[in-house]
Protein backbone atom coordinates (compact mmCIF):
# COMPACT_ATOMS: atom_id res chain seq x y z
CA UNK A 1 0.00 0.00 0.00
CA UNK A 2 1.23 3.47 -0.92
CA UNK A 3 -0.40 6.60 0.48
CA UNK A 4 0.92 10.16 0.56
CA UNK A 5 -1.25 12.95 1.97
CA UNK A 6 -0.42 16.61 1.68
CA UNK A 7 -2.49 19.34 3.36
CA UNK A 8 -0.71 21.87 1.16
CA UNK A 9 -2.03 20.17 -1.97
CA UNK A 10 -1.17 23.20 -4.06
CA UNK A 11 2.48 22.09 -3.87
CA UNK A 12 1.67 19.12 -6.09
CA UNK A 13 -0.23 21.35 -8.50
CA UNK A 14 2.78 23.64 -8.73
CA UNK A 15 5.19 20.72 -9.17
CA UNK A 16 3.19 19.51 -12.16
CA UNK A 17 3.15 22.99 -13.66
CA UNK A 18 6.93 23.03 -13.18
CA UNK A 19 7.59 19.84 -15.14
CA UNK A 20 4.78 19.28 -17.60
CA UNK A 21 6.13 21.53 -20.36
CA UNK A 22 9.51 19.81 -20.24
CA UNK A 23 8.47 16.19 -19.77
CA UNK A 24 5.63 14.24 -21.33
CA UNK A 25 5.95 11.22 -19.08
CA UNK A 26 7.92 10.28 -16.00
CA UNK A 27 8.18 7.67 -13.29
CA UNK A 28 7.46 8.54 -9.67
CA UNK A 29 9.69 6.26 -7.60
CA UNK A 30 8.29 5.84 -4.12
CA UNK A 31 10.02 4.25 -1.15
CA UNK A 32 9.96 4.82 2.60
CA UNK A 33 12.18 7.91 2.25
CA UNK A 34 9.71 9.67 -0.06
CA UNK A 35 8.99 10.28 -3.72
CA UNK A 36 11.70 10.78 -6.34
CA UNK A 37 11.40 11.56 -10.00
CA UNK A 38 14.21 11.81 -12.50
CA UNK A 39 13.67 12.29 -16.19
CA UNK A 40 15.29 13.83 -19.23
CA UNK A 41 13.38 15.97 -21.68
CA UNK A 42 12.71 14.44 -25.10
CA UNK A 43 15.88 15.83 -26.63
CA UNK A 44 18.08 14.76 -23.68
CA UNK A 45 19.49 18.26 -23.31
CA UNK A 46 18.13 18.76 -19.82
CA UNK A 47 17.23 16.65 -16.84
CA UNK A 48 14.71 17.13 -14.05
CA UNK A 49 15.22 15.73 -10.58
CA UNK A 50 12.44 16.05 -8.02
CA UNK A 51 12.56 14.94 -4.42
CA UNK A 52 9.66 15.03 -1.96
CA UNK A 53 10.69 13.67 1.41
CA UNK A 54 8.36 11.40 3.37
CA UNK A 55 8.63 13.62 6.48
CA UNK A 56 7.26 16.58 4.51
CA UNK A 57 3.93 14.83 3.96
CA UNK A 58 1.16 14.94 6.54
CA UNK A 59 0.72 11.21 6.16
CA UNK A 60 3.11 8.94 4.29
CA UNK A 61 3.00 5.20 3.98
CA UNK A 62 4.95 3.07 1.52
CA UNK A 63 5.00 -0.63 2.42
CA UNK A 64 6.80 -1.68 -0.74
CA UNK A 65 8.89 0.35 -3.16
CA UNK A 66 6.78 1.21 -6.17
CA UNK A 67 7.53 2.95 -9.45
CA UNK A 68 4.55 4.66 -10.99
CA UNK A 69 4.90 5.66 -14.64
CA UNK A 70 2.60 8.53 -15.46
CA UNK A 71 1.57 10.59 -18.43
CA UNK A 72 2.21 14.06 -17.03
CA UNK A 73 -0.42 15.72 -19.20
CA UNK A 74 -2.98 13.45 -17.60
CA UNK A 75 -1.66 14.16 -14.09
CA UNK A 76 -1.75 17.90 -14.80
CA UNK A 77 -5.37 17.60 -15.99
CA UNK A 78 -6.32 15.80 -12.79
CA UNK A 79 -4.47 18.19 -10.48
CA UNK A 80 -6.17 21.13 -12.18
CA UNK A 81 -9.36 19.74 -10.68
CA UNK A 82 -7.97 20.26 -7.15
CA UNK A 83 -8.63 23.54 -5.36
CA UNK A 84 -5.64 25.54 -4.18
CA UNK A 85 -6.57 24.89 -0.56
CA UNK A 86 -7.47 21.25 -1.00
CA UNK A 87 -5.72 18.40 0.73
CA UNK A 88 -4.32 16.04 -1.90
CA UNK A 89 -3.76 12.34 -1.29
CA UNK A 90 -2.10 9.97 -3.76
CA UNK A 91 -2.63 6.29 -3.20
CA UNK A 92 -2.00 2.98 -4.90
CA UNK A 93 -2.21 -0.67 -3.98
CA UNK A 94 0.94 -2.79 -4.23
CA UNK A 95 1.47 -3.93 -7.82
CA UNK A 96 -1.47 -1.82 -8.93
CA UNK A 97 -1.83 -0.51 -12.45
CA UNK A 98 -3.68 2.60 -11.32
CA UNK A 99 -3.08 5.49 -8.94
CA UNK A 100 -5.85 7.42 -7.21
CA UNK A 101 -5.79 11.12 -6.39
CA UNK A 102 -8.19 12.24 -3.65
CA UNK A 103 -8.96 15.94 -3.15
CA UNK A 104 -10.65 17.18 0.02
CA UNK A 105 -11.85 20.74 0.47
CA UNK A 106 -10.75 22.46 3.72
CA UNK A 107 -14.15 21.96 5.34
CA UNK A 108 -14.38 18.35 4.08
CA UNK A 109 -17.66 19.14 2.34
CA UNK A 110 -16.34 18.20 -1.08
CA UNK A 111 -14.33 15.08 -1.67
CA UNK A 112 -13.31 14.02 -5.19
CA UNK A 113 -11.33 11.08 -6.39
CA UNK A 114 -9.68 10.52 -9.73
CA UNK A 115 -8.24 7.20 -10.76
CA UNK A 116 -5.58 7.19 -13.45
CA UNK A 117 -3.98 4.35 -15.36
CA UNK A 118 -0.26 3.90 -14.81
CA UNK A 119 2.20 3.30 -17.65
CA UNK A 120 5.14 0.96 -17.91
CA UNK A 121 7.99 3.32 -18.73
CA UNK A 122 11.42 2.03 -19.48
CA UNK A 123 13.34 5.23 -18.91
CA UNK A 124 17.04 5.71 -18.43
CA UNK A 125 18.25 6.94 -15.07
CA UNK A 126 21.50 8.84 -14.78
CA UNK A 127 23.79 8.91 -11.76
CA UNK A 128 24.43 12.50 -10.73
CA UNK A 129 27.39 12.77 -8.39
CA UNK A 130 27.61 15.28 -5.55
CA UNK A 131 29.60 18.10 -7.14
CA UNK A 132 31.45 21.12 -5.81
CA UNK A 133 30.65 23.97 -8.18
CA UNK A 134 32.93 26.92 -8.99
CA UNK A 135 30.07 29.39 -8.62
CA UNK A 136 26.73 29.31 -6.84
CA UNK A 137 24.31 32.20 -7.18
CA UNK A 138 21.24 32.57 -5.00
CA UNK A 139 18.72 35.12 -6.13
CA UNK A 140 14.99 35.85 -6.04
CA UNK A 141 13.25 33.32 -8.28
CA UNK A 142 10.95 35.98 -9.76
CA UNK A 143 13.99 38.04 -10.78
CA UNK A 144 15.53 35.04 -12.52
CA UNK A 145 12.25 34.36 -14.35
CA UNK A 146 12.09 37.99 -15.45
CA UNK A 147 15.67 37.94 -16.74
CA UNK A 148 15.10 34.71 -18.71
CA UNK A 149 11.90 36.11 -20.22
CA UNK A 150 13.46 39.47 -21.09
CA UNK A 151 16.67 38.10 -22.61
CA UNK A 152 14.96 35.40 -24.65
CA UNK A 153 13.53 38.22 -26.80
CA UNK A 154 17.04 38.94 -28.04
CA UNK A 155 18.42 35.54 -28.85
CA UNK A 156 18.07 31.79 -28.55
CA UNK A 157 20.89 31.55 -26.07
CA UNK A 158 21.97 33.33 -22.94
CA UNK A 159 25.45 33.81 -21.54
CA UNK A 160 25.77 33.65 -17.77
CA UNK A 161 29.05 35.09 -16.49
CA UNK A 162 29.76 34.93 -12.78
CA UNK A 163 32.59 36.77 -11.08
CA UNK A 164 33.05 37.80 -7.48
CA UNK A 165 31.63 41.25 -8.32
CA UNK A 166 28.37 39.85 -9.56
CA UNK A 167 26.61 37.94 -12.27
CA UNK A 168 25.95 39.09 -15.82
CA UNK A 169 23.26 37.64 -18.08
CA UNK A 170 23.63 38.49 -21.79
CA UNK A 171 21.94 37.73 -25.08
CA UNK A 172 22.67 38.82 -28.62
CA UNK A 173 20.55 38.57 -31.74
CA UNK A 174 19.29 40.31 -34.83
CA UNK A 175 17.84 43.30 -33.04
CA UNK A 176 20.90 43.90 -30.92
CA UNK A 177 22.23 42.87 -27.57
CA UNK A 178 21.14 42.93 -23.96
CA UNK A 179 23.07 42.72 -20.71
CA UNK A 180 21.70 42.46 -17.21
CA UNK A 181 24.14 42.75 -14.34
CA UNK A 182 23.26 41.84 -10.78
CA UNK A 183 25.59 42.83 -7.99
CA UNK A 184 25.82 40.85 -4.82
CA UNK A 185 23.49 42.32 -2.20
CA UNK A 186 25.48 44.51 0.18
CA UNK A 187 23.36 44.05 3.28
CA UNK A 188 20.82 41.32 3.62
CA UNK A 189 17.60 42.35 5.34
CA UNK A 190 15.41 39.73 3.79
CA UNK A 191 17.31 36.70 2.61
CA UNK A 192 14.59 35.97 0.04
CA UNK A 193 15.35 39.21 -1.76
CA UNK A 194 19.12 38.91 -1.70
CA UNK A 195 21.57 38.07 -4.43
CA UNK A 196 24.31 35.98 -2.87
CA UNK A 197 27.31 34.72 -4.81
CA UNK A 198 29.81 32.14 -3.69
CA UNK A 199 32.70 31.86 -6.11
CA UNK A 200 35.91 29.87 -6.20
CA UNK A 201 36.64 30.60 -9.86
CA UNK A 202 34.86 32.84 -12.37
CA UNK A 203 32.72 30.91 -14.85
CA UNK A 204 31.12 31.91 -18.16
CA UNK A 205 28.74 29.50 -19.87
CA UNK A 206 26.09 29.70 -22.59
CA UNK A 207 22.65 28.09 -22.33
CA UNK A 208 19.52 27.75 -24.43
CA UNK A 209 16.92 30.32 -23.34
CA UNK A 210 14.06 27.99 -24.17
CA UNK A 211 15.05 25.51 -21.46
CA UNK A 212 15.77 28.20 -18.87
CA UNK A 213 12.26 29.50 -19.50
CA UNK A 214 10.85 26.00 -18.95
CA UNK A 215 12.71 25.83 -15.61
CA UNK A 216 11.19 29.10 -14.43
CA UNK A 217 7.77 27.44 -14.44
CA UNK A 218 8.88 26.36 -10.95
CA UNK A 219 9.03 29.97 -9.72
CA UNK A 220 5.90 29.69 -7.59
CA UNK A 221 7.44 26.81 -5.62
CA UNK A 222 10.11 28.96 -3.99
CA UNK A 223 10.96 32.63 -3.49
CA UNK A 224 14.63 31.87 -4.19
CA UNK A 225 16.47 29.98 -6.88
CA UNK A 226 20.04 28.71 -6.80
CA UNK A 227 22.20 28.47 -9.91
CA UNK A 228 25.32 26.30 -9.70
CA UNK A 229 27.97 26.44 -12.42
CA UNK A 230 31.37 25.00 -13.23
CA UNK A 231 33.20 25.10 -16.53
CA UNK A 232 32.02 22.53 -19.09
CA UNK A 233 29.41 20.82 -16.91
CA UNK A 234 25.64 21.24 -16.78
CA UNK A 235 24.12 24.20 -14.96
CA UNK A 236 21.98 23.25 -11.96
CA UNK A 237 18.90 25.38 -11.32
CA UNK A 238 17.45 24.48 -7.93
CA UNK A 239 14.19 25.48 -6.31
CA UNK A 240 13.79 24.37 -2.72
CA UNK A 241 10.27 23.40 -1.77
CA UNK A 242 9.64 24.45 1.80
CA UNK A 243 9.87 21.65 4.37
CA UNK A 244 9.51 18.86 1.81
CA UNK A 245 12.23 18.78 -0.82
CA UNK A 246 13.46 20.34 -4.02
CA UNK A 247 13.27 20.38 -7.78
CA UNK A 248 16.54 20.58 -9.68
CA UNK A 249 16.97 21.14 -13.39
CA UNK A 250 20.24 20.27 -15.15
CA UNK A 251 21.06 21.90 -18.46
CA UNK A 252 24.01 21.08 -20.66
CA UNK A 253 25.95 24.18 -21.74
CA UNK A 254 25.91 25.16 -25.40
CA UNK A 255 29.18 24.47 -27.09
CA UNK A 256 30.41 27.05 -29.57
CA UNK A 257 30.46 25.86 -33.17
Amino acid sequence: MFEARLLRGSILKKVLEAIKDLLTQATFDCDDSGIQLQAMDNSHVSLVSLQLRADGFDKYRCDRNISMGMNLNSVAKILKCAGDKDTVTMKAQDNADTVTFVFESPNQEKVSDYEMKLMNLDLEHLGIPETEYSCTIRMPSAEFARICRDLSQFGDSMVIACTKEGVKFSATGEIGSANIKLAQTASVDKEEEAVIIEMDEPVTLTFACQYLNYFTKATSLSPQVQLSMSADVPLVVEYRIQDIGHIRYYLAPKIED
Binding site: S43, V45, L47, E124, H125, G127, Y250
Partner: peptide
Protein backbone atom coordinates in the same frame (compact mmCIF):
# COMPACT_ATOMS: atom_id res chain seq x y z
CA UNK B 1 28.19 14.15 -30.96
CA UNK B 2 24.54 13.27 -31.25
CA UNK B 3 22.42 15.93 -29.58
CA UNK B 4 20.27 13.06 -28.34
CA UNK B 5 22.91 11.89 -25.92
CA UNK B 6 24.01 15.21 -24.51
CA UNK B 7 23.02 14.60 -20.87
CA UNK B 8 24.49 11.12 -20.77
CA UNK B 9 27.82 12.62 -21.82
CA UNK B 10 28.02 14.23 -18.43
CA UNK B 11 26.40 11.67 -16.16
CA UNK B 12 26.70 7.87 -16.25
CA UNK B 13 23.69 5.75 -17.09
CA UNK B 14 22.57 3.64 -14.14
Amino acid sequence: IERQDLMSLYYPKL
